[in-house]
Design a binder for these strands. Structure first.
Length: 274
DNA sequence: CCCCTATCCTGAGGGC
DNA sequence: TGCCCTCAGGATAGGG
């Protein structure tokens, strides 16, 4: 599933192909994926607009267009955003296609449709709660000093649940929450309030480490994730715990425990993580 | 505030 | 081969 490292990989891939291009045609194949903005007027609104920037906010992808409008994409569980040539047959579950002035296309595909597309002014999207409040981003320079560690320590929730809360930390999902807990040697089932200062600090430092490593490997492709050109990443082969329940811990060889926290599959080493 | 559950949705994988 | 069942989960809404 696309979390921060996967979304960042896509954004870095797409940026050189999109910035400076002009949208020449819009095909909204499945209008219901548009959760903000008017699907009938979307083509007229977007056509002729230049793409000025491609950015990431947590797991959201922002295409900044002329006149301050944004086209925002959240990939949900199975969404992909890839460059393609018009001659390539469109894959099943392709919901939106933007034609560009150099003859290439940007295609949005999402079999499970947990993702969504938003079009309009960001301030309006925020006001209408189409864009949620996001906490500090683990890739931002100020993350370690943003107060996240103390927020975790002041929370009565399980650490895993807190890490998945986008209002606390932007971009963390199920995979990298487990990975960060392993690297920090903290059991994800513990309550935030039981964390020592040192443990909370280790967690906050572990998040950017596991995420930057995953970006280096171009993201985790368990099933659906593809980069901006449709290729798989390799980060899933280097994960410590996610997807490895019942297998030996890479550090101590004890068999990894698999449980559920807040409805999410959670894997940890009961010897290494206290 | 927190937690659980249901909802959205398709495809993969297991059992028979 | 095929059918049915379960499971995967990001975000959100509603009930306890």
């Amino acid at each position: 599933m696309p979390e921060l490292p996967e979304v960042e990989t896509i954004v870095r891939d797409l940026r050189p192909s999109l910035v400076g291009r002009v949208i020449t045609r819009v095909e909204l194949i499945r209008p219901s994926v548009l959760r903000f903005g008017d699907s009938r007027t979307l083509p007229f609104l977007l056509e002729g607009q230049a793409i000025n920037a491609v950015a990431r906010r947590g797991k959201f992808i922002h295409l900044r267009l002329g006149r301050g409008e944004h086209l925002v994409v959240h990939l949900g569980m199975t969404g992909t955003l890839t460059m393609a040539q018009p001659s390539t047959p469109r894959a099943l579950h392709t919901h939106l296609i933007l034609d560009l002035d150099n003859g290439s296309q940007l295609r949005y595909r999402d079999p499970r449709r947990f993702g969504r597309v938003l079009s309009g002014q960001p301030s309006q999207m925020t006001r209408m709660r189409a864009l949620p409040h996001l906490g500090p981003d683990p890739l931002s320079p100020g993350f370690a000093t943003s107060g996240v560690a103390e927020t975790l320590r002041n929370s009565s929730r399980r650490i895993k649940s807190a890490l998945l809360d986008q209002a606390l930390i932007a971009g963390c999902g199920n995979i990298y929450a487990d990975e960060a807990c392993f690297l920090a040697r903290v059991r994800p089932t513990r309550r935030g309030a039981t964390l020592t200062r040192l443990e909370a600090l280790r967690l906050v430092l572990a998040l950017p480490i596991v995420m930057r490593q995953a970006i280096r490997l171009r993201g985790s492709s368990f099933s659906d994730f593809r980069d901006g050109f449709g290729a798989k990443g390799e980060a899933h082969e280097a994960l410590f715990v996610y997807g490895r329940g019942g297998l030996p811990c890479v550090r101590c060889r004890a068999l990894l425990r698999q449980t559920r926290v807040g409805g999410r599959t959670t894997v940890y080493c009961q010897l290494c993580q206290r």
